[in-house]
């Protein structure tokens, strides 16, 4: 054991944490508008299968194919979440059950698997993948090389997004109005803000980001299509929104913590460390529970709590 292994763990924590962050950032936008999306897992899988299909079928240069895979994954995720928004915002159904319905509908034995079957996605490899880059030729630099200069394009995009979304949420007028919709839709409505529009837009945006997370699985992590390949990442992303107290910067750190836990198994095994794979596999799930318990203390909630109207359908008083 030397400092080398630590660098590998940090570098792969960022790699594995990237899809978690995309999905969790989507969750932040959705939940800030007052909609709870429990369908992230299914949304990611539909994004992933659509992205894998695009990688197999869209021609042109490698960059173009990868870009189109990401775009198509986003569209698939956006459509899936539009369905959720229709149920939760227009029909005002129970948001918890609606989200579960999305995950069952789209999930491991649902539509994502159905599409993979009829499109023959699983039978073929994913030819054009999201690869790690060698930025400025600095990938071989000691320490910072593997951690910072040898990541995928989506990782760099996620860093930009972390900054932009923080500015958007806390420094712009639209961000303020979005938070108002999530905290007190009655007030927002009285101010002339369209609750319905804000909720639709941010739920769909959240789904598109979850779709990118799914594409990262099918084009970078695995990279081929396997039914149910996200293995609970969507659920961890939902928990990450809570750990991050609905803030992009904290969520990014949380995503890397869980990225580290997810990658620990393969990293240690590759290094010949003898440790039970089952315990390592269970670690992210156990840690999710532990951290959830820690952040659900009363103090944390009062200071940094959830949007007050989260999960509550908005009903305008009838005149």
């Amino acid at each position: 054991m030397n400092s080398n292994i630590l660098i590998i763990i940090i570098a792969s924590a960022i790699f594995y944490g990237t899809p978690l962050f995309f999905a969790a950032l989507g969750g932040i936008f959705t939940e800030r508008s007052g909609v709870l999306n429990l369908g992230v897992e299914g949304t990611m899988l539909l994004g992933g299968v659509s992205g894998a299909w695009a990688s197999q079928h869209v021609g042109g240069s490698a960059w173009f194919t990868v870009l189109m895979s990401i775009v198509i994954g986003m569209i698939a995720g956006g459509i899936t979440s539009a369905l959720l928004a229709f149920l939760c915002v227009t029909l005002k159904t129970n948001q918890t059950v609606a989200g579960l319905a999305i995950t069952i509908f789209a999930g491991a034995v649902g539509l994502s698997s159905y599409f993979a079957n009829i499109w023959g996605v699983a039978e073929n490899p994913v030819p054009r993948q999201i690869r790690r880059l060698d930025v400025f030729g600095l990938a071989d630099t000691p320490i910072v090389g593997p951690i910072i200069f040898n990541q995928t394009i989506l990782t760099y995009v996620s860093w930009v997004l972390a900054v932009l979304s923080t500015v958007y949420l806390f420094r712009t007028r639209i961000g303020l109005q979005l938070r108002a919709v999530g905290e007190s839709p009655q007030t927002a409505d009285a101010m002339g803000i369209s609750v319905v529009k804000y909720r639709y837009v941010h739920t769909i945006l959240g789904g598109a980001l979850a779709g990118i997370g799914g594409v990262f699985y099918s084009l970078a992590i695995v990279p081929t299509w396997v039914d149910g390949m996200t293995k609970g990442a969507g659920w961890i992303a939902i928990a990450l929104v809570i750990f991050g107290f609905w803030r992009p910067s904290l969520t990014l750190l949380g995503a890397y913590l869980f990225g580290a836990l997810q990658s620990l198994g393969s990293t240690l095994k590759a290094r010949g460390v003898n440790i039970s794979g089952d315990i390592l596999d269970a670690l992210p799930f156990v840690m999710t529970i532990v951290v959830l318990v820690l952040v659900s203390s009363r103090f944390a909630h009062r200071k940094l709590g959830a949007p007050a109207a989260l999960g509550v359908p908005y009903e305008r008083e009838e005149r």
Binding site: L83, L91, T93, N94, V97, F105, G110, S113
Partner: peptide
């Protein structure tokens, strides 16, 4: 009769069940 159909139908039933509540 592709796999995935069962989950898709189950999910749709859950959609319509929850929508039926309204």
């Amino acid at each position: 009769f592709p796999s995935g159909l069962v989950g898709t139908l189950q999910g749709l039933i859950l959609f319509t069940a929850v929508a039926g509540e309204i």
